[in-house]
Nucleic acid binder design. Structure first.
Lengths: 213, 213
DNA sequence: GAGGATGACGTCAGGAAC
DNA sequence: GTTCCTGACGTCATCCTC
């Protein structure tokens, strides 16, 4: 029951939160009446997950002083004032603490969902990366290099054939020296010139008609 | 009696921490709730934040007198028991709270560094993905088809030249030399010799010119 | 019901920012 | 100096679990 609820203040603002002073009796010990506390609203159990505190650091911090002992009983010239000051401080700190907690909580959950999002992103990124990798692997050696090798080889052969043909021409003789290691070369040598298509997928050769005659 | 140690669980530091219970009594005003036990205990505000956590141990705890010096009339002995129970509870809760805070703190920082790591991973993943994307894009239309076009074109030319050469051989007559297997031989109307004007430029090439329309 | 765990709070101490 | 902010603590209320 002692705890009261903050007036629905979201983190967005915080102004005008009337913090009910605790009426803390301060000083050595408030004690006094067990329930000397006035002005307290019952807290309706809001179950507000707060989640903060995350502390760290710790250092001794000594503070061992006992000087201003006011023993005699005629001091109240400055005390009241002092006390009221203290009350003010406390209240402000109360408020500040609350806000700080709110901030921390928000930060925490943002961080948490950022991580969530990032995890998802990372996952999808990674699988698309994988897919690309495969694609690349499939694309390069197969289509590119393989076909290229074929073309180059054919090229080589043609060059060879041409060379021979030219030699033949130059010698000005007859016969057909170009036998072609591949399939019987002569009669056109077209065999070597076959050319399987290259379309989208490595489908079988379509035997595109060679455009010569 | 009130001194005990936290398990020192933490990996950061293994020192045993002496924990001085506050001897409570506080009952902060409003929380007096049930107004149970006034239990006044002049606790001179010694600020006993144990300041544990990191190093700093030992801290001889003096002044832990028994708090029950009630010599004057003890009319309620039942209360004493009650009170001691309460003290025990408080102490335990104190300990539990501390541990809970530690856990939370650790959880938080784990989460935090997990996010850090994931962020890094995501970054690198994303740039390698980008690189692949480029590679893929560059590989398909450019390297592949461009070079392939070149090869094929050359191929065509060679074919053409060879054809002519063979024709020349077959006719076995006059000899117009078809020197130049490379560049020569154009202008046959075979159209197979499309020139390569588009290659170098990063043209779209999406249309993937079929070399013989 | 007893006991542990935890959200929320108020308080203090000490650093930061004005 | 002053205020503001926040880590750490102790306490309470509450939720689970046994």
């Amino acid at each position: 029951m002692p705890v009261f609820h903050y007036p629905a203040d979201s983190q967005t603002n915080g102004t005008a939160i009337s913090y009910i002073p605790v009426s803390s009796q301060s000083h050595p010990q408030e004690s006094g009446g067990p329930s000397s506390s006035p002005t307290r609203q019952p807290r309706g159990h809001a179950t507000d997950p707060d989640c903060n505190d995350l502390d760290h650091e710790a250092l001794p911090t000594k503070m061992d002083e006992d000087e201003d002992e006011d023993e005699e009983e005629e001091e109240e010239e400055g005390w009241e004032d002092e006390e009221s000051k203290r009350q003010k401080r406390l209240e402000q700190n109360r408020k500040a603490a609350h806000e700080s907690r709110q901030r921390k909580k928000i930060k925490y959950q943002q961080l948490s969902e950022a991580l969530e999002a990032l995890r998802a992103e990372s996952l999808q990124l990674s699988q698309q990366s994988q897919s690309m990798r495969e694609q690349l692997a499939a694309t390069r050696p197969t289509r590119h290099s393989q076909e290229r090798a074929r073309l180059e080889e054919e090229n080589q052969r043609l060059r060879q054939a041409l060379l021979l043909a030219l030699q033949g021409l130059a010698e000005d003789e007859e016969e057909e020296p170009i036998e072609e290691e591949r399939e019987g070369g002569q009669g056109e040598g077209h065999s070597a010139l076959r050319e399987e298509e290259e379309s989208k997928e490595g489908n079988t050769s379509v035997t595109r008609a060679p455009m010569l005659e």
